[in-house]
Design a binder for these strands. Structure first.
Lengths: 147, 147
DNA sequence: GTCCGTGCAAAACGTTTGCACGGAG
DNA sequence: CTCCGTGCAAACGTTTTGCACGGAC
């Protein structure tokens, strides 16, 4: 039932070994918690969730350190939603996508649009840039909140 | 020589009056400093600039309060660049645009692409959203840094 | 036995707020 | 004269860091 996560965590263990570093229970718990949460969580939210559902002894400093480490190695990624003062993390999806946020209920949807990706490269080129990455968040009112 | 700013500040005074509020030297200095800076500045950077070049007695709380007030009234706007922990402000351009940032030299260019705007509305509609706004930042290596 | 990763607490940031005062209307 | 906007300092929420310890290799 957890085959997807097993595969994911195995890849992670290989990464750790390749880097010549050491793994830890904490890192795996943090990944597990994030992997099984559909939401985009801030470090604090993730820490609270972990304390409640997994292991209450994991300190928040570790959550920050691990998330930062994971982001450096592209295992997770973060977005800055609207005026929020903290980043929201998710497992880095193998398939790239962007986000659309409902300004009323704060729900976050993901989407991928190939035309958009193509257009971004064109725009970068036109400005003399070699495109590396992009952040893109759309804000609107979702179907449910429109009523 | 400062006709553009004069016009801008006059519009601002009308806005203040329309709101039934009071103007202040501080607000005008903050606007002046931001208006004449081409860069996208954080509240702290703007405060430092103002202390050095305009009036050392303007407190940082005022800068935050004024920027927040100005953003609420669409006089300025802010973006969250990459991993920075603070927002970067600019005078709200009458013409909407997005940003492309050089990850090496941190230079910020502005661009506008009508196809992109159209595409965003389409994407929102496809997901059942009524589009209100968007954040979009491209990251790449600029022409100068490519060499 | 080495170090790396951790937990804790303190520090460091960026930002907001309570308060009394001064200045614009 | 009335409030609004300000400066100051304290408070706040988020993130980072120094340190000694424990655990992975």
């Amino acid at each position: 039932m957890d085959k997807k996560f097993d595969k994911f965590i195995n890849n992670f263990r290989v990464l750790i070994k390749d880097l010549g570093l050491k793994n830890s229970t904490q890192r795996e718990i943090i990944l597990k918690a994030l992997f099984h949460s559909k939401a985009h969580l801030s470090a604090e939210e993730l820490s609270t969730l972990i304390k409640k559902e997994y292991d209450s002894s994991i300190g928040i400093a570790t959550v920050y350190r691990v998330l930062s480490f994971l982001e450096d190695h592209k295992v997770v990624s973060s977005i800055n939603i609207g005026n929020a003062n903290s980043k929201a993390y998710e497992i880095n999806p193998s398939d790239h996508h962007d986000h659309i946020v409902c300004t009323k209920c704060k729900k976050v949807l993901e989407f991928f649009n190939p035309d958009l990706e193509k257009l971004q490269v064109e725009i970068a080129n036109k400005n003399g840039f070699k495109l590396i990455d992009h952040d893109m968040i759309l804000y609107g009112i979702c179907a449910g909140c429109k009523k």
